[in-house]
Design a protein around this nucleic acid. Structure first.
Lengths: 261, 261
DNA sequence: CAGTGGTCTAGACCACTGG
DNA sequence: CAGTGGTCTAGACCACTGC
């Protein structure tokens, strides 16, 4: 009855009081992540019902649920009662909620304006020290560099400089972005099978230089918020490094450290 | 056997397809929070074992666990296998981990320096519009205002202006802070029974004015990171409004939106 | 060793969705 | 209505702590 005793591969205590056995649900979680990552279940599609997964993996439904719980918590899966469990897809709402933190400063409710992206340039290049460090690649590795201006309510507010490794995005060209109504993370996902699942950001204050001042319509020496973001896929694999400069005269960066109730 | 049918107060469907019954574990969570908030279990102390709670509340242990799970997730409770479950106390490690986000910019590991706090002033006053809005109180409500300079590795890096309602902190005086080796949130908790459980922060870039420039040892017009924090207790009740100005020449604000694996 | 939380199982029933 | 996730229960055993 008790599965544990049927499977001798678990609970392997090493000689010298070494590493502990991984909980079964963590293993299921890993298998689920792998299956998603391998493309068996596509973004936006439903994964099999929990009872099916429990049969497939030969574990109790409760164990599957605990694994799914964590993936839902990490925004990799989305549960919908009565419908099923789905692989999170990168739509605009998701981007705005999880990856766009600029809000109008006079809004108490922290509602967000949707940015309008205008590409300034698209170039090939070699990773500098900073880019290499953040992307976990060697210096001089080939990268793409994309520069955008983001407008909020018609005014240029954000200047983005994006760096991504060429190896991850084969045959990417400037025209790939043309006429795409979706977000760039949706493009990563739909065209290159790369799913951004989380990001880490570092912020500091900067003075606007001549170029940025012109782009954002501020004076040289105006204060700008600089954001350095590393976007990561499964297993914290770095995917994109982005440096943003934000005119925070009427907008702010909102950081809610609230937990998931 | 099934508790649901013994308790008729739950599952109350209102006439016009109205509000849903609250899950039992949410109710248990509320009771736990209330009990902590009422002071029956003190910060740092263990709460009763799960089986005791399950008897006390007349529910299954699994239901208690689910409630405790969420409170652990919100950093209100701390589980320690083999020892028990404890009410989170505000020690320095906890503060640094959850409420202090300034890291040295050249450190990849995002290790933090411990700030040395020097109080500049302690005054009574009346809430202005901004303070009132953030603290959820009426304009002109009586408040305390505390101004600090925080040094990191001997250099003044942060200027803090803290505003708290007098009603929440009876008989607070400047000398209350004298010779306290602990953090201010520890003081709130130990001397006033106010536990800060989460915070929301808004960031922007600013230019240093004369006063701040002098305090932080930078030039007038130097770029500073401004952080407006609202610290909250249980049920998101605002407790403290803090405006920080940070010299981000060698330090950064680190925002990791990682989830709890 | 007793006592705690951590994992896993098994099964019942509820709430919601969509045909 | 069938099928999905959501809640709740009950009980076994494991892993860890501290006496």
């Amino acid at each position: 009855m008790h599965r544990k005793w049927e499977d001798s591969s678990r609970h392997h205590k090493l000689a010298a009081g070494a590493a502990l056995a991984t909980p079964l649900y963590k293993e299921i979680k890993r298998l689920l992540t792998e299956t998603i990552s391998a493309g068996e279940w596509k973004p936006g599609a439903a994964i099999p019902a929990e009872w099916m997964l429990s049969e497939r993996f030969k574990v109790a439904v409760g164990t599957v649920r605990k694994a799914v719980d964590e993936l839902v918590n990490e925004n990799i899966l989305i549960r919908q009662q009565g419908r099923g469990t789905f692989v999170a897809a990168h739509n605009r709402a998701r981007l705005m909620f999880h990856f766009f933190h600029i809000v109008k400063s006079d809004r108490v409710d922290s509602a967000k304006d949707t940015p309008l992206v205008e590409m300034l340039s698209f170039r090939k290049g070699s990773a500098n020290i900073e880019e290499a460090a953040h992307l976990g690649i060697a210096v001089s590795t080939k990268v793409y560099r994309i520069r955008n201006v983001l407008r909020l309510v018609d005014k240029p507010i954000i200047f983005d400089a994006i760096t991504i490794p060429q190896a991850l995005f084969p045959k990417l060209t400037a025209s790939t972005f043309k006429g795409r109504p979706n977000t760039i993370y949706h493009l990563y996902q739909s065209a290159f099978d790369i799913t951004v699942v989380r990001s880490a950001e570092r912020l500091r204050a900067r003075l606007a230089d001549i170029e940025t001042a012109e782009l954002l319509g501020v004076k040289v020496g105006a204060p700008l918020l600089e954001i350095r973001r590393v976007a990561m896929s499964f297993n914290d694999a770095p995917v994109e490094f982005r440096r943003s400069l934000v005119n925070t005269e009427h907008y702010e960066y909102f950081s809610d450290l609230a937990k998931n109730s």
